[in-house]
Design a protein around this nucleic acid. Structure first.
Ligand SMILES: [Mn+2]
Ligand SMILES: [Mn+2]
Ligand SMILES: [Zn+2]
Ligand SMILES: [Zn+2]
Lengths: 141, 141
DNA sequence: AATACAAATGAGAATGATTATCATTTGTTA
DNA sequence: TAACAAATGATAATCATTCTCATTTGTATT
């Protein structure tokens, strides 16, 4: 809610585009948004910001730790508010809905497998692509 | 070794570019190759094939089940011979070396987490990015 | 072995997401 | 309010990949 503080803390000047974008993430019903989606969302609210700026700000927010970037298998990356705790993703192949999950045992075994082989794990990507079992996929886009 | 059979089985006409590319994968010391790498490898051997053809053939081989495509976090996809058994990857952030691993417990838990949430898992991506601990990273590119 | 024709190839244009340029605007600080 | 670095936005550039289409090649048939 106190975005200005977040921006200041990150050493970022408090500008209109930045406030609008951060605000969008904090109020949108969609948790995972692409640059294009952010751009269009703002346009549709009269709040227009250049697409180049959207890309720049998203990257800055990522570096500042405000957002986390995800690369799903569809060419464009999406961003989400960084809630501090790591999680992995299940992506519905039918409607694109993204579900989040966290399994400490999976995390522990990633760590183990990696260190066993003489590596120090830095980060990882675990994306599961799946079909919704319910007859009516609940989260059509 | 009997590439012609593989191609026929896949319903693919036996052409020079296809033979050369399949041959490259079966003889290269690198297991994971990008389209660009395949293209340059062939050029450097006098065997030249158009880049568009390389892309086309790699995709066809993937669809035929001869190759598997991987998207690491560096913008370009790489292909590897399909050895039938699934595995995940550890990518060295320093030298790009790729290590393969398979952990049945991780696989089982992916399955469980996904089905618990009402999804039928289709495929998944597990890529671990890590730094080689040994003082001299062994697989410089 | 020569012919016929669909399929495959290759050069280069097109695409789509993202980044770079650079002249203009804006936030901050004095 | 002035001063100035930082940020913005329109647009060009990039880069991996795909598309187009005229030419070539593999294969099946005389
Ligand atoms: Mn998420
Ligand atoms: Mn592999
Ligand atoms: Zn995880
Ligand atoms: Zn796996």
């Amino acid at each position: 809610m106190q975005q200005p503080e977040d921006l200041k803390k990150a050493g970022l000047k408090l500008t209109l585009p930045r406030l609008k974008i951060l605000n969008l993430f904090e109020n949108s019903s969609e948790r995972h948004l692409s640059a294009e989606e952010v751009y269009k969302q703002l346009l549709s609210t009269g709040e227009d910001v250049g697409l180049a700026t959207v890309y720049r700000v998203l990257t800055q927010f990522e570096q500042a730790g405000l957002l986390v970037r995800q690369h799903f298998d569809n060419g464009k990356s999406v961003f989400e508010l960084n809630k501090g705790e790591h999680h992995d993703h299940i992506v519905c192949l039918q409607c694109g809905h993204v579900e989040e999950f966290y399994d400490p045992e999976i995390e522990a075994r990633q760590e183990r497998n990696t260190s066993e082989r003489g590596f120090a794990i830095q980060e990882h990507v675990l994306h599961i692509y799946a079909n919704c079992v319910k007859e009516n996929c609940p989260n059509k886009t």
